[in-house]
């Protein structure tokens, strides 16, 4: 078996009962913030897509995963221990920022749940990025590693309790605080949120070529 795509696990960080971060050896893997990989246990035929969580310049390689009830791979990976061999393929995908826009453009990132992962990577990779991040969760405990982001850039929208910056869903927030046509907007997470935000942005006059989406199917 080729070992080119084998990345030993360095550590696992449990953020909540179900969410965890896997840190792996990077082994020279190059990627662009926003891309995803296919990840599975070495030798297993099962793998799934996961956005890269770590930054482009980090020495290690991370993904943020939420264990899904009845889920196969998200459960398997949660049981990993340091030293385990993980097999990954990629990087894949086009959910990235054009290099020439990094320094100049205004970004709005909208995420639900672990959909925050690519934005963690972008924020970590491009310190000068001018962005606002809306993170939709049920309760504040799901605000994965919030302290990583500058407080003025991060809006926690909690739908089930009044613990966030905003009580309601990201779509409610957007209706109250409309996006502007000069923004480059990146959406990541479940399909229903993305579909609804698309409609809201259309009504708010944001050109469709400035809206990018990564759907976690």
């Amino acid at each position: 078996m080729s070992t080119d795509n084998i990345h030993p696990l360095i550590g696992i960080r449990h953020l909540t009962e179900s969410a965890y971060v896997l840190r792996m050896e990077r082994r020279g893997l190059s990627f662009r913030a926003g891309q995803h990989i296919l990840l599975g246990k070495a030798g297993s035929i099962h793998n799934r897509e996961y956005s890269v969580y770590s930054g482009e310049k980090d020495d290690f390689f991370e993904v943020l995963i939420r264990e899904v009830d009845e889920g196969l791979v998200s459960k398997q990976l949660k049981k990993s221990i340091p030293g385990d061999q993980l097999q990954l393929e990629g990087p894949l995908g086009f959910f990235t920022i054009e290099p020439e826009l990094i320094a100049s453009a205004k970004f709005l990132f909208v995420a639900t749940g672990t959909g925050i992962a690519p934005f963690h990577s972008m924020a970590g990779s491009y310190p000068q990025l001018n962005y606002t991040l809306l993170h939709g969760v049920r309760c504040a405990s799901e605000a994965y590693e919030r302290s990583f982001y500058a407080p003025k850039r991060h809006r926690l929208c909690a739908s089930a309790e009044k613990t966030g910056d905003f009580h309601g869903r990201v779509t409610d927030y957007l209706r109250r605080h409309p996006a502007t046509a000069d923004m480059h907007i990146y959406l990541c997470g479940n399909f229903d949120m993305i579909k609804e935000v698309f409609d809201i942005l259309e009504q708010q006059g944001v050109p469709s070529e400035q809206v990018h989406a990564e759907v976690y199917f």
Binding site: I194, K195, F198, S208, A213
Partner: peptide, 12 residues
């Protein structure tokens, strides 16, 4: 566009 999104066609 919505169906294309759900199909993950990555173009509008």
């Amino acid at each position: 566009d919505h169906v294309l999104l759900r199909m993950n066609r990555k173009h509008s």
